[in-house]
C-alpha cells in the first residue's frame, strides 16, 4: 500500500504521456491522407494527379492524322524518323485547336542545331560548317526540310553554289 502511495506520482506522469499518445493517434487517424498506403508508403492519389498533368507535345501520330501529305513526303526521305515536334516544337495547343497557327521555324537556325559540325558528333551524322556551307542563307533555299537533299526545283538561287552536298557527304 505504502509502496503504491510513494510511486503514485509516477503514474501521473505516465497518465500525461498516455494522454499525449492517444491524442497523437487520434490526430494521426485524422490527418493521414485517405489514399496513403494503397500501393505502398505514399499517397496513391498523387499518381493520378501526376498522370493528369497537361500535355504539351501532341505526339507525331496526332500530327499525322491531319497532315498525311507531309507524312508521305517525309517517309521517302532521310528525315522519315524525325518526329514533327522535334523541329516544329510543342504543338499540343495546335492539335487541340487547329485555328491556333504555329510559327514556322527559321531553317537557318533550326537545321544548324543538328547539322552544325561538331567534333563530338558521331561521324555517321551529316554535318556542315554553316558559315562556309550556306553563308547564313536559310537552309530551305536549297533543301526541302521534310525530304532533305537538294531541291530539284527551279527555285535555286544563283548565288547558292551551295557548298555542295559534297561537304555533307564527306562528313558522313
Amino acid at each position: 500500500m505504502n509502496r503504491f502511495k510513494d510511486s503514485e506520482h509516477l503514474l501521473r506522469v505516465t497518465g500525461v504521456f498516455l494522454a499525449g499518445i492517444v491524442l497523437f493517434l487520434c490526430l494521426r487517424a485524422w490527418f493521414v491522407p485517405k489514399s496513403f498506403g494503397q500501393y505502398g508508403h505514399y499517397r496513391a492519389d498523387s499518381i493520378t494527379e501526376i498522370a493528369a498533368l497537361p500535355i504539351r507535345h501532341a505526339g507525331h501520330e496526332v500530327c499525322e492524322s491531319c497532315h498525311a501529305d507531309v507524312l508521305e513526303v517525309k517517309h521517302t526521305g532521310k528525315h522519315a524518323n524525325v518526329n514533327c515536334e522535334a523541329c516544329h516544337g510543342p504543338l499540343a495547343k495546335h492539335a487541340e485547336d487547329p485555328s491556333i497557327k504555329p510559327v514556322l521555324p527559321d531553317t537557318a537556325v533550326l537545321c544548324a542545331r543538328c547539322h552544325e559540325a561538331n567534333s563530338a558528333k558521331p561521324k555517321w551524322f551529316p554535318q556542315v560548317v554553316t558559315a562556309e556551307h550556306s553563308q547564313g542563307l536559310p537552309c530551305n533555299t536549297c533543301h526541302q526540310p521534310h525530304k532533305p537533299g537538294l531541291k530539284d526545283t527551279d527555285a535555286k538561287p544563283a548565288d547558292s553554289k551551295t557548298a555542295d552536298s559534297k561537304t555533307a557527304e564527306a562528313k558522313k
Binding site: R3, K5, D6, S7, E8, H9, R12, V13
Partner: peptide, 10 residues
C-alpha cells in the same frame, strides 16, 4: 502534477 508526496519513501 498535483502530487505533494515527498515522504522519505517517495
Amino acid at each position: 502534477l498535483g502530487s505533494q508526496n515527498i515522504s522519505p519513501g517517495a
